[in-house]
């Protein structure tokens, strides 16, 4: 009799404690979901953290953590979302949840600007979940490839994407044709201008470095201002104002000359960045359009 009573008492204790705490976690989660749906991301993130805090099992914690990650992403707090999601990285159990966690980590890393970090999470998904459908990761992988400027990998990746998602061959060809066409319209992969070469050009021929960097206007202005300063020096010296010529003519000339050399390098760097940004943005738009069309 004793052991039967003991069994009942243990059951009562476990039922009461576990179901109350499990229920509390659920309640916080529900309240957070309702705030999230209302667009109150900050408040929702606190309640998701509360659900994480009160959860008694790893599954409950990862569910709350993933939901909190969504709220943080809505707030634009990608770095913090990644930090929080990282807490559940040791989770083992539900494979789909673990895959979701790694995907969210990759997405947050990409949105945070850490393409290499995103690539590492995507590799974990690729090798750890071979049986899972990869349709979702293709887009993110493509974006990471663009961000990392791995141009040789981009087209094979697109082909692989269309192949693995069972795209009809005509559609596949259309997409690839559109991609090639777009790259050609953009003038191919931008070839960067060498800032050192730009500086060297300006050293020997004032304004030439600016032309090389692709800023003809600055090149003309630079060459003209340096000639004007030198002309001023010549004119003053011709009229016998040697000291004034040195200070009012050669002084500004040396400033313009050395400043011009520095500016040529800076312009080349800026131009490289803006051209690459434009090219990457166009490619990303293309990938997003493809993903949107495939979803329809």
């Amino acid at each position: 009799m004793k052991w039967i009573n003991g069994f009942y008492l243990i059951c009562i204790f476990l039922c009461a404690t576990l179901s109350i705490s499990a229920n509390e976690h659920e309640r916080w989660l529900q309240a957070a979901d309702s705030l999230f749906r209302g667009g109150n991301w900050f408040e929702a993130s606190i309640l998701y953290e509360r659900a994480y805090y009160t959860s008694t099992d790893a599954r409950g914690r990862i569910v709350a953590n993933l939901a909190k990650g969504e709220a943080m992403k809505e707030m634009g707090e990608f770095s913090r979302a990644r930090r929080d999601l990282q807490r559940s990285v040791t989770f083992r159990g539900d494979e789909s949840l673990r895959e979701e966690l790694l995907y969210q980590l990759a997405l947050c890393a990409y949105l945070e600007g850490d393409a290499a970090g995103a690539r590492s999470y995507l590799l974990q998904i690729k090798h750890g979940f071979e049986q899972m459908p990869r349709s979702r990761t293709f887009l993110l992988q493509g974006l990471v490839i663009i961000e990392e400027e791995r141009w040789d990998d981009l087209r094979p990746h697109l082909e692989n994407w269309f192949l693995e998602t069972n795209e009809p061959s005509e559609m596949r060809d259309d997409y690839l044709y559109a991609f090639d066409n777009m790259v050609a319209e953009l003038g191919g992969i931008p070839s960067p201008r060498d800032p050192d070469r730009a500086r060297m050009w300006s050293t020997f021929l004032p304004g030439a470095g600016q032309f090389y960097a692709g800023s003809a206007g600055w090149g003309v202005l630079n060459a003209f201002s340096q000639m004007a300063a030198l002309g001023g020096f010549g004119l003053m010296a011709w009229n016998g104002y040697y000291i004034a010529g040195v200070f009012a003519g050669l002084g500004p000339f040396q400033s313009l000359y050395f400043g011009g050399i520095r500016q040529a390098g800076t312009l080349a760097e800026q131009k490289n960045k803006s051209r690459m940004d434009e090219f990457q943005a166009a490619l990303k738009r293309f990938l997003l359009d493809v993903a949107a069309q495939k979803q329809q």
């Binding site: 009942y8 009562i12 509390e24």
Partner: peptide, 23 residues
């Protein structure tokens, strides 16, 4: 004891509701 166990199972939702307000 069994009665208490059953009773607890029955009134659990009520207990949970009073455990913490979901506000």
């Amino acid at each position: 004891t069994a009665g208490v166990f059953l009773l607890l199972l029955l009134i659990m939702p009520g207990l949970q509701a009073s455990a913490e307000a979901p506000s």
